[in-house]
């Protein structure tokens, strides 16, 4: 009966499009990463593990790109969750014009990353940028840095810009979670003489755990796929210091070294599909529970 009312062919086009343009390229990657596919010759030869040998060799920069991607992901997850939680707790009660602040804090997450990148390219300009100008004008000139040019600061600046863009979104998810926690818990804890720290540790964090899991997953997936932020702000510079996986894939692609680009993509594909398997299992189970 169900089969007749809910015919599976309703899902065919969806499954087909998704498979052909999403999954298939990922699977094709397993084959092409073992080839010398490039734009200079029409022939594609099987070369075994050569691409991966090069990828993991200490003489090349690829390990650095992987490392950068992981640092970026780890740092943005930590910063957005930590700051988002702190902001959410600070703004949970007693703030007037809540709606207005919510709109403002959410605003950066809807602006295209490309635009954010261009704006911060100007703000972080060492000579004329708004940040250094402001620091100088309030007498904190010694804090001014060559944000996107300095080897020590470039990557940190990118992480900061990405955090600026994403923290409001995370904060609002956590704020929604906080407001679902009943006040009676805190009242009971106060009667028992618990301080602010104990309330945070034993009430807020445990009850916020589902929301924190969601934000961590969102930030994790976002971090591993970072592209525009790096591409626009530094394009991997100075040198290759800030290149991440997706920017290096694009560089390989632009240079016509498709085999190597595919090998890098496939590495990310395997890693994220494994992570995704557990994430998605969690998500689909929760969906079942709702019924």
């Amino acid at each position: 009966m169900n089969k007749k009312i809910y015919p599976i062919h309703f899902a065919w086009i969806t499954l087909a499009l998704y498979t052909v343009f999403f999954v298939l390229p990922g699977l094709m990657g397993f084959y092409y990463s073992f080839t010398d596919w490039n734009s200079f010759s029409t022939e594609i030869n099987f070369i075994g593990f050569d691409n991966f040998k090069q990828l993991f060799s200490a003489d090349e920069n690829y390990l650095g790109f992987i490392n950068n991607t992981l640092i970026f992901t780890f740092a943005t997850v930590l910063l957005k969750t930590g700051l988002g939680l702190a902001f959410a707790i600070a703004l949970n009660e007693g703030v007037r014009m809540k709606g207005f602040h919510r709109v403002m804090l959410f605003l950066p997450s809807i602006v295209p990353m490309l635009v954010v990148g261009l704006v911060f390219k100007s703000i972080l300009n060492p000579a004329t940028g708004l940040l250094n100008e402001t620091l100088r004008s309030v007498g904190l000139g010694f804090l001014a840095q060559k944000w996107l040019v300095d080897l020590d600061w470039a990557f940190k600046s990118i992480i900061a810009v990405d955090t600026w863009k994403g923290v409001g979104y995370i904060m609002i998810i956590l704020l929604a979670g906080l407001q679902a926690i009943s006040k009676t818990y805190y009242e009971a804890a106060s009667i028992d003489g618990a301080g602010a720290w104990n309330k945070l540790r034993h009430i807020t964090i445990p009850l916020l755990l589902p929301a924190l899991t969601v934000t961590t997953v969102l930030n994790l997936l976002h971090g591993l796929k970072v592209f525009e932020a790096v591409y626009v702000l530094t394009n991997g510079g100075p040198g290759y210091a800030t290149d991440v996986l997706y920017t290096s894939i694009f560089k390989e692609f632009s240079m016509g070294r498709f085999g190597m680009g595919t090998a890098l993509s496939t590495l990310l594909f395997v890693f994220m599909t494994i992570v995704g398997y557990f994430v998605v299992r969690l998500m689909s189970r929760e969906g079942d529970g709702d019924r």
Partner: peptide, 17 residues
């Protein structure tokens, strides 16, 4: 289908497709 939420796009082989 929803595994695609996590899966990254392989832009290089996608050109073949």
């Amino acid at each position: 289908l929803i595994l695609g939420i996590a899966m990254p796009m392989n832009f290089v082989t996608l050109t073949k497709v």
